[in-house]
Design a protein around this nucleic acid. Structure first.
Length: 312
DNA sequence: AAGAACCGCAACCGCCTCATC
DNA sequence: CGATGAGGCGGTTGCGGTTCT
């Protein structure tokens, strides 16, 4: 019996597989390998076809829009690369996984740390309930990077995502300085401080996130940084956000409210505005448990993702 | 110019699920 | 109902190119 080849594919092997697939179509992959005259296992052929030879693959670096979408989808789906890939035409799970593990992780790592000696994106547990006292140096680029993560109404980030969000939120100057200053009561908002994402455990068998909750920190009225982002609250529902450029981030804050609202839904099936007077009680973290994570429900949000445009 | 360090990406590995017998 | 094989998936490895020293 001939020993099966491993390692990089030669152009000849690619030709054989490509020709066979185009002429005969996909059948059982071990048959494909045999009939195409390849000394490869079926799995290897499948991988090569899916990740490299498939005619509908998009080549080249991902666009900023795709990057935004990957980040957004990852915030919803976690490391479910195949499901993320399924929503990015022409991209493979392997490609997205590689992109995430190199580019995105690097960007997370490079975010400014509240502690100069700390380069990890792990949360600073010691200061977990302390927003003050740091010297921040976040850039507009950082803000642009983290904002898509807020563009979700998903109540179900993974532990890692919640951790990363916590850390990043704490390091963003606009939040540090209380710019996200929502009304303490009444319509439109319930926090006068950035929401804090905490998570104690995940039921992996059911994708059920338990113990994920928002904790209300207190940020005093420190004047906003001129150089970053300013907000003006014109009404309870109208949180206007401006920065030096033209970008308006108000939608992001709506989404943060969505996250908050969804937590309430999970707790007692009532949104905050349907549950006046019960707000503080509802925030009890120990009792606040996420409902089933309905993937398709979550993905409805993606359909309206504002940057999703594959026309280019 | 050369070796070291770094990085991106292709491919493999091992595990899981599902269908079939 | 267990055994078996195929397909699918996420994690990991290691090659090869690029940048740094």
């Amino acid at each position: 019996m001939t020993k099966l080849r491993k390692g990089l594919w030669s152009p000849e092997e690619d030709d054989k597989l490509m020709n066979y697939m185009l002429n005969s179509g996909q059948g059982c992959w071990s048959d494909v390998a045999r009939n195409a005259g390849l000394q490869r296992c079926g799995k290897s052929c499948r991988l090569r076809w899916i990740n490299y030879l498939r005619p509908d693959l998009k080549r080249g670096a991902s666009s900023p829009q795709e990057e935004e979408l990957i980040i957004h989808l990852h915030s919803l789906l976690g490391n479910r690369w195949s499901q993320i890939a399924a929503r990015l035409p022409g991209r493979t799970d392997n490609e997205i996984k590689n992109f995430w593990n190199s580019t995105i992780k690097k960007r997370l790592k490079n975010l400014p740390s509240p502690n100069a000696s700390e380069s990890s994106c792990e949360p600073n547990k010691k200061d977990h309930n302390n927003n003050g006292g740091f010297s921040f140096n976040s850039t507009q680029q950082d803000v642009d990077f983290i904002m898509p993560m807020f563009m979700t109404s998903s109540p179900s980030p993974t532990t890692t995502q919640a951790t990363v969000l916590n850390t990043m939120i704490e390091r963003l100057p606009m939040l540090e300085h209380g710019i996200m200053n929502m009304p303490a009561s009444g319509a439109g908002g319930f926090f006068n401080a950035p929401p804090r994402f905490l998570q104690s455990e995940i039921d992996n068998d059911h994708n059920n996130i338990k113990g994920f909750y928002l904790e209300n920190g207190v940020v005093e009225g420190v004047p906003p940084l001129e150089s970053v982002i300013r907000t003006t609250t014109t009404s309870d529902h109208d949180l206007k956000v401006e920065n030096k450029g033209d970008t308006n981030y108000s939608c992001y804050f709506d989404d943060i409210n969505n996250i908050v609202n969804n937590c309430y839904i999970s707790n007692n099936n009532k949104r905050p505005h349907e549950n006046r007077g019960g707000v503080q009680e509802d925030l009890c973290p120990e009792e606040l448990t996420m409902g089933e994570w309905d993937l398709e429900d979550l993905m409805k949000d993606v359909a309206s993702f504002p940057f999703l445009d594959f026309s280019s």
